[in-house]
Structures are given as structure tokens and as C-alpha cells.
Amino acid sequence: MSTTTPQETIHVTLGERSYTVWIGRDLLDDHARWRAMLRGRHALVISNRTIAPLYLERLTRGLDGLHWSSFLLEDGEAHKSFANVGLALEALATLGATRDACIIALGGGVVGDLAGFTAACWMRGIDFIQMPTTLLSMVDSSVGGKTGVNLPAGKNLVGAFHQPRAVVADIGTLDSLPAREYRAGMAEVIKGAAIGDAIFFNWLEQHAQALAARDETALVQAIATKVRYKAGVVARDETEQGERALLNLGHTFGHALETAGHYTTLLHGEGVAVGMLLAARLSERLGMSHSTDTLRLEQLLKAIGLPTDVPTGYDPEQLLALMRLDKKNTAGTLRLILWHGIGLAEIISGVDEADVLAVLREAM
């Protein structure tokens, strides 16, 4: 194992559902570390056809002596579907998986979400281990136990809270990550700082160039800081009854943008980037924040190489209609995550749709 790349170990404290997040290089090959997390004789590895040729063999060397098989998705958000959950469940049935079986999710957020939801469904809940291979999944979706699938009506409308048994974040897998997807992952890092850590936001501004260049020391520190922040929030509010909803800054706008583009125009992190900026502009319009905070956010997003504009051809009325389907809404009114400036996010209920529509139209 490399002696130069730093390693981090973070604990997510949830009583009997507590688990560890390991961050470092060559962790896929550290079989003794993660093999100990498997409690039974059966394992199903869920991955996709892009990631599996790169890393599946390295992982499965650690499954020697077990009954295991793999289920591969096509790549892309459109494949996070009920149809594929059904096929994954059939793969478990063919394997003869019992209640002590484990699913291993090798891939990005789509793979992790679908694998976790499948694990939650099989025999009313079995273990699963997250092995995220994208920056986005390392810093966000692999931690916290949110699992689910998409419907044509909207993203992640069906799902379950099902915590992983462990998270193995091997940053070596980021070597093969395309630049666009790497930048999309940085959006979630920025989001964590924008929500509740102004000091971390300052650090990101100072290290934007190093992070854009994938400097490993800066990268591990950024991943660990974001995961540590999220672990604390999840420990205090596991099922998103209050504080955890803050982690959705930019997501109501972003999910609408993703859905309107049929999950092909924007990557999730790109939708979050644009969505955060729209949320900042709405906050400014409502007198909650100052334009200097909006500008700092925009400049940091641009320094990383993330989009800050709504793609051309989108309809503001359609985006608003999609936002009405967001899971955070209550009693038929919009409930958005806005801010009072960097590091000061707040859940705001009863947001006037006219203000949202005005911000969307201005962004066009």
C-alpha cells in the first residue's frame, strides 16, 4: 500500500447500525480489511459495464471460498430502475442467497443506490458494502443509507433508508474517472461547505487549483472533511426528519433540471452545482443573503470547472412543476433549502412559487 497517500478512517455512529468509512489508495486490494465485514457464505457484486472491467477482478480475489456472482448494469442514471432491481433480486435468488448474504456495490451513485435498495428488499433486509468508484459517491451517496430508484415522474421517488455495513473508498479508482465526472463530484464537496462550514469553504477557495488538478493530499482531506460532516448530520438525523434535509441544498432545483433533461443533459453533480446557485439567487431575492455570497459560490464552482448556467431550451414552468414533486415538500407547498450566506443553510417552508419562477426565468 502506498506510503505517500494519506488515509482516513471515519465512523458513522448509529448504534447497532454504526459502520466505518475507509478512505485511501489500494483499499480494494486490502481484502483482510473488508472481507471481515461479510457475515455469511453468499455475496452478490453489483457493478456496471464500465467499472467492472477495471476493478471487478481485484475485488473478487477477496471473495475466495464464498458463493458469489455479479450483476452488471448498463452505465447511466436511466438504469436506476425497478426493472433492474427485479433482475438483481433474481440474481440473488439464483445464487441461493440467505439472510446473512451481502451485496457489494462497486461503482458510482447509481450502482450504490440500486444495490442498497435491492439489499433492503431481499428477505426484508440484508447487508451491503459500498465500494464507491466516483468522487460523487465517495463524498455523498455512499454514506448515510439513502437508497432508491427513479421513476419517469422524478428522481429517487422510491427508496428506503438502509445503512451499509461498511464503506470502502479507494481513491485509486478515481484515476480512471473522466474529468467531467470528477468535477461533478466536487459539487457535493462544495455543497457540504456551503451548508454548514464557512471555514471549509474558505479552504476550498484556497485549494481550488490543487483540487482541480487532483492533488491527492488535498483530495483526501476534502473527501474526509465532507464525509465527517455528513456522518455527523446522519448520526443526529438518520431518516431526514430535520437537519439532514439541509444536505439537499440545490437538489430541488437540480433534480428538476436532471429530470427535465431525461438524465442525459446534466450529471447529478452538475445539476447540484446549478441548483445551489439558483438557491443562492432565490435566497438573495428573498432578502436572506447578500450578493457577495452568491458571487463567491459562483466563482468557486467556476474555478473547479462546474456549470453555473441552466442549459438552453428548458421551460421554467416545467421545472417548477417538477419541483412540486420534491420529497421535502409539505402540505402542497414548496419546502426548499436556502441560506443566509456561506455556511448558514436553512429549511424554508411555504416558499412563494412566484419567486421561484422569477429566479428560473432570470436564469434562462
Rank of each mutant, 00 (worst) to 15 (best):
Q7H: 14
E8T: 13
I10S: 01
H11E: 14
S18Y: 06
W22D: 07
D29C: 13
H31W: 15
W34G: 04
R35Y: 04
L38Y: 01
G40T: 12
L44I: 10
R49P: 00
T60E: 15
G76P: 09
N84T: 05
L95M: 08
R99P: 09
L106T: 11
G108L: 12
V110R: 02
F117A: 05
T118Y: 07
A119G: 10
P132C: 06
T133Y: 10
V149N: 09
N150W: 04
K155E: 07
V158Q: 07
G159R: 08
Q163W: 05
Q163L: 09
A166P: 12
V167Q: 07
V167Y: 08
V168Y: 05
L177R: 06
Y182I: 03
G185I: 03
A187P: 07
A198N: 04
I199S: 13
E205W: 10
H207K: 13
Q209A: 15
Q209D: 14
A210N: 11
L211E: 07
D215K: 05
D215G: 14
K230L: 11
G232F: 11
V233D: 09
R236D: 15
D237R: 05
D237V: 03
T239D: 03
T239H: 14
E240C: 01
E240I: 02
R244H: 12
T252I: 11
F253C: 01
A260K: 02
H262V: 03
T264L: 12
G275K: 06
L277I: 11
L278T: 06
A280K: 00
A280L: 04
E284I: 01
S289F: 00
T292L: 11
T292S: 15
D293N: 13
T294S: 13
T294E: 05
L295R: 14
L295F: 02
E298S: 13
D309I: 03
G313D: 12
D315P: 01
R324P: 03
L325Y: 13
N329S: 10
L334I: 07
G341S: 10
D352K: 10
A354R: 15
D355R: 03
L357A: 07
L357I: 04
A358H: 13
A358M: 04
A358R: 14
M364L: 15
